[in-house]
Design a protein around this nucleic acid. Structure first.
Lengths: 233, 233
DNA sequence: CAGTGGTCTAGACCACTGA
DNA sequence: CAGTGGTCTAGACCACTGA
């Protein structure tokens, strides 16, 4: 099975970039040069270069040319996964304990974050997730009732809020922050650690077309949780 | 200025996905349906759908069809930025203090990580980065001498190792982990914090075509450093 | 078999850049 | 002006799937 022509062009350029044949900022072969070099149509080399551009490996300027990208800002993907699936994929058991599940009036900062009027009802759950019996995450979550009216009726020992919300409210945009911090006294108690133990804290807000769906604070004992990732062009 | 036809098709599909018009797993219009609906050529709808596929919004199966993606695994981009640029972009001042810069014999675990024989020389720098005079990062870095022979001669109060290495050794692949932990006694002293203060610790290894270039441990006081990101299709 | 996506071609017109 | 990328068309052949 012969390789597709556009991948041959793409691989040629990619290899040259890896070898430093075109150093960052240098002009790369034009579409017409590649057309005659590879004896393919311009659509084909166009696709090859466009994909490299999408991967951030080259930059293009109309009327000027294609250039090897400055890799100063290399980006990697950080995947928002469902903790339940993560744990199962490690061949371990996942349990959840629902500490709290109720409706509350929205407090001050929260109202703003969820785009609700101050004091409007909001759903609040506090769930501890265990991997093989060991507490791994304290999930403190507020949900916009308009996006998931039946949220409080769900049995979260059987499904996770993340999973349920992805089903009922198509996620469209997410913002998150990651930091190291100390758990609150209550969180420490629930996680079976001391308030001095460092934790990885992720705060995440998801929205659908400017309507906030949910705000979650995810606290993980530092010794038990790591984020891994890699970048590969 | 009329919108390009392929973006019209792409936006139509994207909007439908945001509205939940096609729920995860549902079959979406075929290329030929879109061709007659939009009165464009198949190449054009093909490009629109291919880009949605690259963004992870749809999945395609040859001979079967195009389907709305299950968004269970939504990914966001985490950008490897140069701390120096980060700080300047906030309008702040960046200073670096070189605590250590020398050649050492490679220790056990390190040799493996860098693909060097045990005891082979390796470059080692320890640098503290300050934002407006406040310690923000402790950068403990080992460098494969073969990739950057002049590394130890560089004045790292003037340029950062990240920046220098991106210049001399085209980065091609990176692996990282992020966790919360406690600094070593030495790190705490250098950062002006106590060993009990939680820190965000990033360990990053970069390589070029299977040749490890550098391994860095970046320790940040939790109270002073956060990672922010967002996902938006 | 009909329908799907995967890919390619040989041309075309355009906007933009810099000499 | 010549050269660049941005985009499109109308066809084509193919591999694959499921009835």
């Amino acid at each position: 099975m012969a390789q597709a022509p556009y991948t041959r062009v793409k691989d040629f350029l990619k290899q040259g970039l890896a070898e430093g044949r075109w150093t960052p900022g240098a002009q790369m072969p034009s579409e017409s040069e590649l057309v005659s070099q590879f004896q393919v149509s311009r659509m084909t080399v166009g696709r090859a270069i466009r994909e490299l551009q999408a991967e951030g490996l080259v930059t293009r300027v109309q009327g000027v040319g294609t250039f090897a990208a400055h890799l100063a800002r290399v980006s990697s993907t950080l995947t928002i996964t469902d903790l339940h699936e993560d744990i199962l994929s490690r061949g371990h058991q996942h349990q959840a304990r629902v500490v709290l599940s109720r409706q509350e009036p929205t407090a001050d900062g929260l109202a703003q974050q969820l785009g609700l009027p101050l004091g409007a009802p909001v759903f609040h759950t506090l769930i501890i997730h265990y991997e093989n019996g060991v507490p791994l995450q304290c999930e403190d979550r507020y949900v916009n009732p308009a996006c998931a009216p039946d949220y409080l009726g769900v049995d979260f020992t059987q499904t996770t809020p993340t999973h349920y919300l992805l089903e009922v409210a198509p996620l469209w945009e997410a913002q998150y922050s990651i930091e190291a911090g100390q758990p609150s006294a209550h969180e420490a108690e629930l996680l079976g650690i001391t308030p001095a133990d460092p934790c990885l804290i992720i705060v995440r807000r998801t929205m659908n077309r400017d309507v906030p769906i949910t705000l979650a604070r995810l606290v993980h004992p530092g010794a038990r949780y790591q984020i891994h990732g890699q970048f590969k062009p």
